[in-house]
């Protein structure tokens, strides 16, 4: 259903980064910034998304179970509309994510990128690398023993 991937890919990427960020971390990054007022296009609302898997990992889809998600949409006085779909039930977190989404579409995009998105991306990379490092320490080489009967 994508329109033109080149247009939407950067926005999808920052929305994904915001959705997966820790609520307290996003709040801390936004705290020192001067944020504009907004009107609701859709007030924050918590709900569920049915997560799907595939039979055998590659086959037909099946319903695995739901996850909690909070969404909202807001409009800035300058006209940009920000959307958020974030994991969990934290409405303030969804609001912050939508605010960043809106600001990324206007003249403050570079500021948001440097002050919010880059640190979130760095956190995420560090966290993934730390887990990958611990996993690598538990990598094993199994040997099969040759029995001496022949």
């Amino acid at each position: 259903m994508s329109k033109i991937d080149d247009d939407t890919a950067p926005r999808a990427a920052w929305m994904g980064l915001l959705a997966r960020s820790r609520p307290d971390r996003l709040a801390a990054l936004l705290a020192p910034l001067d944020l504009p007022a907004h009107d609701w296009a859709r007030a924050p609302e918590s709900g569920a998304v049915m997560v799907r898997g595939r039979a055998g990992g590659t086959g037909a889809p099946f319903n695995l179970g739901e996850m909690t998600v909070t969404r909202c949409a807001l409009r800035l006085a300058t006209g940009e509309v920000g959307h958020a779909y974030v994991q969990g039930r934290d409405r303030a977190h969804a609001t912050r994510a939508a605010l960043v989404d809106a600001l990324m579409q206007g003249p403050r995009a570079a500021e948001m990128q440097a002050a919010v998105l880059d640190p979130l991306a760095a956190d995420r990379a560090a966290q993934r690398a730390a887990r990958a490092g611990k996993a690598a320490a538990t990598r094993v080489e199994f040997f099969t023993l040759v029995r001496g009967e022949d």
Binding site: M1, G16, V51, G56, G57, M67, H83, Q87
Partner: peptide, 24 residues
Amino acid sequence: AVELDIPELGFAVEIGEVELTECE
């Protein structure tokens, strides 16, 4: 990662991530 098609946007977005166990 969990991706959801967002009808009002017209593209899919990662809305979070889940820890899973898979056995084949």
